[in-house]
């Protein structure tokens, strides 16, 4: 696998790789997201307790899972950047951060819109909601720290450090529903057991999740391409690729 991965550490190769991947990721993401969400909105059954509000699940659960796996991805890239000094890993940390922040914001906002009719409140300072809000602040912290240094390399290093340290929050979010008393329900899919969601709801949920995942990867590809170009703009290969002459 490392034989296959190693060439991607070269910015030019990674730029082309992301360019090939992007249209397929975007196209499949939009198609699968459409199928998953229409299925969830129109064809999936009501919940016997939550009625139609359960349809918020098809965006809430995927965005919440994505917010955590995107953070893990960013932390791995940050670790690689800090330990092995891989340039493109450093750039991907900053390429990933705003995308993860948006998914986190979506999970919080959809959760509020679901909480109001079902729990009777938009917001509650309980374990799950608070730790998820901290995740949003971690993403924003990474972006802000990078911007706070006039030297991009120093900024990148400090931001990566925060990204790596902040990864402790991911298991805290996941287990918060078990460790503390909370309004939020426990895990239904991500557990060492068969999922406790009926197939008529599980399928549209998994399809929506796949669609969100592909969309995240597509946007990361796009931002990484921009980041590579920005950092390498004085290299001959960029001029040869974009300049045309």
């Amino acid at each position: 696998m490392f034989k296959w991965l190693h060439p991607l550490a070269k910015p030019e190769t990674l730029y082309r790789f992301c360019g090939h991947l992007f249209p397929w990721l975007m196209l499949s993401a939009l198609t699968i997201l459409l199928v998953g969400n229409v299925w969830g909105l129109v064809f999936a059954p009501q919940d016997y307790q939550q009625f139609d509000t359960v349809r918020i699940m098809y965006i809430h659960v995927p965005s919440a899972l994505l917010s955590m796996s995107t953070y893990t991805m960013m932390a791995i890239a940050a670790f690689i950047a800090l330990v092995w000094q891989v340039k493109v890993a450093q750039w991907s940390v900053l390429a990933i951060a705003p995308i993860g922040a948006v998914f986190t914001a979506i999970s919080l906002l959809t959760g509020m819109a679901w909480g109001k009719p079902m729990w009777g409140t938009w917001w509650e300072w309980d374990a799950r909601l608070t730790s998820q809000l901290i995740l949003l602040f971690l993403y924003l912290g990474v972006i802000a720290l990078y911007g706070a240094f006039s030297d991009r390399q120093t900024g990148g290093k400090v931001a990566s450090l925060l990204a790596v340290i902040g990864v402790v929050n991911v298991p805290i979010i996941h287990f918060s529903v078990e460790w503390w008393h909370t309004l939020h329900q426990g895990a239904s899919i991500m557990k060492f057991d068969t999922p406790s969601v009926h197939p008529s709801m599980l399928w549209p949920l998994l399809i929506s999740l796949l669609g969100f995942y592909l969309l995240m990867l597509a946007l990361v590809c796009l931002r990484l391409r921009t980041a590579i170009l920005e950092h390498e703009q004085h290299r001959p290969w960029v001029r040869a690729t974009l300049g045309g002459h």
């Binding site: 918020i56 914001a105 979506i106 906002l109 946007l219």
Partner: peptide
Amino acid sequence: MGGYGFYIWLAYGLTYGLLVGLA
């Protein structure tokens, strides 16, 4: 949406608004 239209369309509207904005 069985009387919950406001909350469901608010959630979907915010989600797709943010996603389109991000893209």
